[in-house]
């Protein structure tokens, strides 16, 4: 065994000399259902947010209106039609994603935040804030990524529930009560939307920083991974 280990490290060393890019392997990162639900979610959420902002403009909660460049659906009735179409896509697609993760355990193994991950938060923060130079050792996803990927579906659930609270304040009055009253439920709906948009901005930022390989792997499923082991 000892010998085998030494030989392997020699081979690795030779590889490093021979190929200064190191060896690149293709790893299968994202199963089909994950990719499909990811892009359907992108479309659904895009329609939901933009048409929702048009609906917001019909009776702004605060002292500002959303510039029409960030709205969708034309007038109020059009925006409502888009919103109440895309809500089904958003909810059913989300449900498919949850069921898949529960059945396949894909999410549980890779992106679900667990207590073990809490110790990794501080080092990752230090790394992102450039206090720490070397990337902390992680598997596929680091603690902060896991935290984000685990909490953001909760924001989506919050958006759906607060949406039901203002779509059906009589039939689902108990949900409306959960958020205070009709008017406060509107504010909650806006807050959950803002959290989802914030996640999206951060998500895009990370893709740009980490390289477009991540982006293409969400289309093809495969990712080029540098390996030296």
């Amino acid at each position: 065994m000892r010998h085998g280990h030494e030989i392997a490290s020699l081979v690795r060393a030779a590889n490093r000399i021979g190929d200064y890019n190191m060896t690149t392997n293709r790893e299968y990162h994202h199963p089909l259902i994950v990719r499909l639900t990811h892009w359907l979610n992108f479309i659904a959420l895009g329609i939901m947010v933009l048409s929702g902002l048009r609906i917001y403009n019909a009776a702004p909660i605060w002292d500002f209106r959303i510039p029409s460049a960030f709205t969708f659906g034309g007038w109020l009735a059009g925006a409502r039609q888009w919103h109440f179409f895309a809500m089904w896509l958003f909810a059913l697609n989300g449900a498919l994603w949850v069921v898949y993760n529960l059945v396949s355990k894909h999410g549980r193994m890779t992106t679900l935040f667990s207590r073990k991950d809490s110790s990794g938060i501080l080092p990752m923060l230090q790394y992102y804030l450039r206090i720490r130079k070397e990337h902390p050792p992680v598997k596929k996803y680091n603690s902060l990524q896991k935290l984000a990927y685990t909490t953001i579906p909760l924001a989506a659930v919050g958006a759906i529930l607060s949406g039901m609270a203002i779509y059906w304040p009589v039939q689902f009055g108990w949900i409306t009560k959960l958020f205070g009253n009709y008017d406060t439920a509107r504010i909650w709906h806006f807050v959950f939307m803002a959290l989802l948009v914030l996640f999206f901005v951060g998500h895009i930022g990370m893709v740009v920083l980490a390289g477009w390989g991540n982006f293409f792997s969400m289309i093809t499923g495969w990712k080029r991974v540098k390996t030296d082991s």
Partner: peptide, 25 residues
Amino acid sequence: ALLAGCDYSAGGRTTSFLRTFQQFN
């Protein structure tokens, strides 16, 4: 006028799809 000023009326097929979906809702 509002309809004319936006993309909403651009696609007749999209409009009728949304109206049909609205009836489902």
